[in-house]
Computed example of a mutant assay.
Amino acid sequence: MEIKKIFNNNVALTEDPTQTEMVVMGKGLAFQKKVGDQIDADKIEKTFITPSESFADKLYELLDEIPYEIISLSKDITDMASNELDTTLNDSLYLALSDHIHFAVGRSKNGLPIKNALMWEVKKFYKAEYQVARKALDMIEHTTGVSLPEDEAASIALHLFNARQDSSGMEETMAMTAIVHDVTSIVKYHYGIDFDEGSMNYNRFITHLRYFAYRILRGELNDDGGNGELYEQVKMQYPEAYECSKKVQAYMEKRYQKQMTKDELTYFMIHIHRVSVREQAK
């Protein structure tokens, strides 16, 4: 394979005899090499085809900031996740994971862990991605010596979910957008409020709606009976949010012929209450 660009001593952009471009990784594989030279195949540890030149350029930018071991680790995690989830993951996951892991490890070393507000929802509704992410934490600890908190498993699980190539079709994306818009409108008019679209609570609410819409369209709503006790507690504590969530439930039944579970209704009430209280307080 001929070298087209050298990122650093360990990473290079190459082209094979069929003119297919790919990034190759390996300790010292580009050391004392120049563009046009051939790569020593014995030194190649990892390869992946680049979807675009812009992808290669973004990788180059990351390599200015992120150690090779993190880039290599992210490739291993992506390959593991693709195998475990039995799906093709978007190539952008390499970049997103490398960036995320690098900063997560750095924050942990400095005693600055970040809580993931969606952790319990991720554990409940994205069990497969979460279990894979737990394995990723073990891989991270093995490579870096840093044991990341459980919250990071939830963050990685969301990266995996977003990287599923089969979840971004235009028709499905439009349908998801319609659900998010309609449910947001129901909440808005129920409370008579306008949302601060830059607020953290609004963004959390929209994130939950997007994942909910995905599950609705894929028929993946969790139907394990739910936590009835928690449902009743939240219902009693947030009666206005309960009334609003019932309107959302009626909409889903009429438009999509889907029954929302108690778990879904519980999380809706919590998010609806949070976002509405913050908006009404302004």
Rank of each mutant, 00 (worst) to 15 (best):
D37H: 06
I270Y: 07
A41K: 05
L148I: 08
A154E: 13
L112G: 06
M252W: 06
M260W: 07
D151V: 00
V23H: 12
S92V: 14
G28R: 01
L29V: 02
Y231S: 01
I206R: 15
E61S: 15
V248H: 12
L73M: 09
L93Y: 04
M119E: 14
L95G: 12
G145D: 08
K262Q: 10
T143Y: 08
T266E: 08
S98E: 02
D91L: 10
D223Q: 11
N110F: 08
F268C: 08
L118E: 14
V275F: 02
D196Q: 06
I140G: 11
K282A: 11
K34L: 03
A136P: 13
K127I: 04
A163H: 03
L230A: 05
V248D: 10
V35I: 05
R274N: 15
N222V: 07
I270R: 08
E197F: 03
I270A: 13
M269E: 11
I6Q: 10
K258N: 14
Y242L: 02
V146W: 10
T207G: 13
E84L: 00
S82H: 04
D151Y: 12
F31R: 14
K135N: 04
D138Y: 11
T184Y: 06
A153H: 11
S245F: 09
V183T: 11
E2K: 15
F55W: 12
T207I: 06
L89P: 11
G226M: 03
G111N: 07
R134W: 01
A117T: 13
A133H: 02
G192W: 02
D76M: 05
H190L: 00
M22L: 14
M139L: 10
G28C: 07
Y126V: 00
V23W: 05
L13N: 09
T47C: 11
I272E: 09
D166N: 10
A56N: 13
K282F: 06
Q233R: 10
V105F: 08
N201W: 05
G219E: 13
K127P: 00
G226N: 07
K58Q: 15
S276L: 01
I193F: 02
I272Y: 11
F205K: 03
A136G: 03
K124W: 01
M170Q: 08
M174S: 07
F7E: 03
N83I: 01
K258L: 10
M269W: 12
K58W: 15
D42M: 08
N9E: 15
F55R: 06
I186W: 01
I66H: 05
E253R: 08
K115G: 13
K127M: 06
L85V: 00
R164D: 14
L89N: 05
G198E: 05
D64L: 14
T266N: 07
Y60W: 10
I186Q: 09
A41Q: 14
K247R: 14
T87F: 00
I156S: 04
V105Y: 11
L97Y: 08
L59I: 04
I66C: 03
D40F: 07
V187S: 02
G226Q: 05
A250V: 06
G26E: 07
